[in-house]
């Protein structure tokens, strides 16, 4: 959010009793934040530690926070005995494809809703708003039947296509594009640009932050999706990460070290993506999407 946001964030009223009051206040703020971050991250620390423990030392009591003899056995096990790379690849293909297709399709629809005038526009947009309320989980059965009729069980398309129906992206893109001044597109129109050229050359570059927000949101939703892959995939080699990691646990036994290693490895890509893009993601751009 940078300097502007920080200036806004500061309390406009100077605190009375400058020294004592103010510093106590600041200390309280950071104590709350540190406690919150500690609670957020504590379980991760425990899992990282467990992923380096040997199976024998897992159940020592009282449990220790740091592994006594750190070992990479769990990671070796996971990568040698299970098709972990394949799961990772599948998740990337699915989440990547859904994100790429949705960015194009939703920004096009958003542009039409935001800037074009055509009969039935408001009625159609109302349909989009209403459909935000449709829970995907309730459409599990008919979606499964449609995908099966299309012969797409255990295929990438079967995993990808249902994710493309979600209307939230159209809604977000419309809000973003509507906030752009119309002068730029009108200038381009006078230059003889076609609507597609305006979309491609004027609108898309201007809504880059919005595209990043929608892209990260879509990618994360797909990356963490569990219910749909669980239903549509029965072959182990088509499993996505979530289903694959889950399959490591049989009903009666649980190899905690192995599961922890899998948890860490399957989260690494999302954390990397997030760190790389968080500048955009947090830039308050969501606020733009929320304005009514």
């Amino acid at each position: 959010m940078g300097a502007e946001g920080r200036a806004l964030a500061r309390d406009p009223q100077p605190k009375p009793g400058r020294f004592g009051g103010k510093s106590l206040y600041t200390i309280a703020i950071y104590v709350i934040l540190i406690v919150a971050v500690f609670i957020s991250l504590l379980p991760f620390g425990y899992v990282v530690s467990t992923s380096f423990k040997s199976t024998m030392s897992l159940f020592s009591y009282p449990p220790d926070w740091l592994p006594e003899n750190p070992t990479l056995d769990n990671y070796r096990n996971l990568l040698n005995r299970y098709p972990f790379w394949r799961w990772l690849f599948n998740s990337f293909v699915v989440a990547g494809s859904v994100t790429a297709i949705k960015l194009v399709v939703d920004s096009m629809a958003g542009y039409a809703f935001a800037k074009m005038r055509f009969p039935g526009r408001d009625a159609l947009f109302l349909v989009v708003l209403m459909s935000l309320m449709v829970p995907f989980a309730a459409l599990l059965i008919p979606t499964f039947i449609i995908i099966r009729e299309l012969g797409m069980l255990n295929t990438y398309w079967g995993l990808i296509l249902p994710g493309l129906a979600s209307p939230i992206g159209v809604f977000m893109m419309r809000q973003f594009i509507e906030s752009l001044p119309s002068d730029l597109e009108n200038a381009a129109r006078l230059d003889g640009c076609s609507e597609f050229q305006i979309y491609r050359r004027v609108i898309l570059p201007l809504i880059k932050p919005g595209l990043v927000v929608l892209g990260v949101f879509t990618f994360m939703t797909q990356w963490t999706s569990y219910l749909w892959p669980l239903v549509v995939v029965t072959k182990p080699e088509m499993a996505t990460l979530t289903v694959g990691v889950r399959s490591l646990t049989s009903t009666f036994t649980q190899d905690w070290g192995l599961n922890s290693a899998a948890a860490i490895l399957s989260m690494l890509p999302t954390i990397l993506v997030f760190i790389f893009l968080q500048r955009y993601f947090i830039a308050g751009s969501i606020a733009g999407a929320l304005k009514e």
């Binding site: 500061r10 899992v47 963490t224 289903v243």
Partner: peptide, 28 residues
């Protein structure tokens, strides 16, 4: 909003649990 310094670091750290797929979050 009140934190003058380090706000963005805290924000990112607080966001990390949301990045965990449920399979991972449930294991954690």
């Amino acid at each position: 909003q009140q934190a003058a310094r380090g706000g963005s670091a805290f924000r990112s750290l607080l966001y990390i649990p949301t990045l965990a797929p449920y399979v991972v979050a449930a294991l954690l």
